[in-house]
C-alpha cells in the first residue's frame, strides 16, 4: 500500500480494565496513531483513548431528508403531474396518502447511510492490515485485549514506546512488521 512498511507494537492484556488504563497512558503521552482491540466494545474506552464523538449521525440526517424529498418529488411527479388519477374521491396529488411511502423512504435512505457511512468512516472492508501478522492477535476476537501503536505515529520510538507499554503491565509485547511476502498466508 505504501512505500514505508508499517510496523506496530502490540501489547496484550488479560482484562478490559488493564487495557483501558493503558489507553489512558498512551493518550496522556500524546500518541495519536494507537488503537485498542477488544472482543467487544469496552465501556469508557472512547474517553480513555480521547476519541471525539462519532460523526455518523450527521451523515444520516441529511440522508433522511434526501429520502423524504426524493419521495415527495417522485410521487408528486408521477401521480400529481404525469399520470393524475382520482382514486376514492381524493385529489390526484394528496399529501396524507403520501406519508407512508415518504416515511419508508426516509428510513431506507437513513439506514443505508448509517451502515455504509459506518463502513466509510471505518475504512472497511479492508483486505489487509499488518496487525494480522501477529499470531496472538487472533484472540482479540475471543478473550484478550490489545493495544497497538503504529510506527506512523510521530511519537513512535522503538525504545520509548516499548518502555511506555511495559509500564502498563501487559502480558505480552511484540513488534509486528508488515511482511509483504507472507501477507497471502496470514491475511483474511
Amino acid at each position: 500500500m505504501s512505500d514505508k512498511t508499517l510496523t506496530l507494537y502490540l501489547a496484550e492484556y488479560e482484562s478490559a480494565g488493564a487495557c483501558v488504563h493503558a489507553a489512558e497512558k498512551l493518550r496522556d503521552a500524546g500518541y495519536a496513531a494507537f488503537d485498542a482491540h477488544t472482543p467487544f466494545p469496552v465501556h469508557g474506552m472512547d474517553q480513555a483513548m480521547g476519541l471525539p464523538d462519532s460523526r455518523l449521525g450527521w451523515l444520516v440526517l441529511p440522508a433522511g431528508i434526501t429520502g423524504v424529498s426524493l419521495g415527495f418529488l417522485m410521487i408528486w411527479w408521477m401521480n400529481g403531474v404525469d399520470y393524475p388519477l382520482i382514486i376514492g374521491g381524493k385529489p390526484a396529488f394528496s399529501i396524507p396518502s403520501m406519508v407512508p411511502i415518504l416515511f419508508e423512504l426516509t428510513i431506507l435512505f437513513s439506514a443505508l447511510t448509517a451502515v455504509f457511512g459506518m463502513f466509510g468512516l471505518n475504512q472497511l472492508p479492508r483486505h489487509h492490515h499488518p496487525i494480522f501478522n501477529s499470531d496472538r492477535f487472533a484472540s482479540a476476537t475471543d478473550d484478550k485485549f490489545f493495544i497497538s501503536v503504529e510506527s506512523s505515529d510521530p511519537k513512535f520510538n522503538l525504545e520509548k514506546t516499548k518502555k511506555l507499554l511495559e509500564a502498563t503491565h501487559p502480558t505480552n509485547i511484540e513488534l509486528v512488521a508488515d511482511k509483504d511476502d507472507e501477507v497471502s498466508e496470514d491475511a483474511p
Partner: peptide, 10 residues
C-alpha cells in the same frame, strides 16, 4: 470485511 476489533471502529 477485515474487522480487527479496533476501538476506533467499535
Amino acid at each position: 470485511l477485515g474487522w480487527r476489533s479496533s476501538n476506533r471502529h467499535w
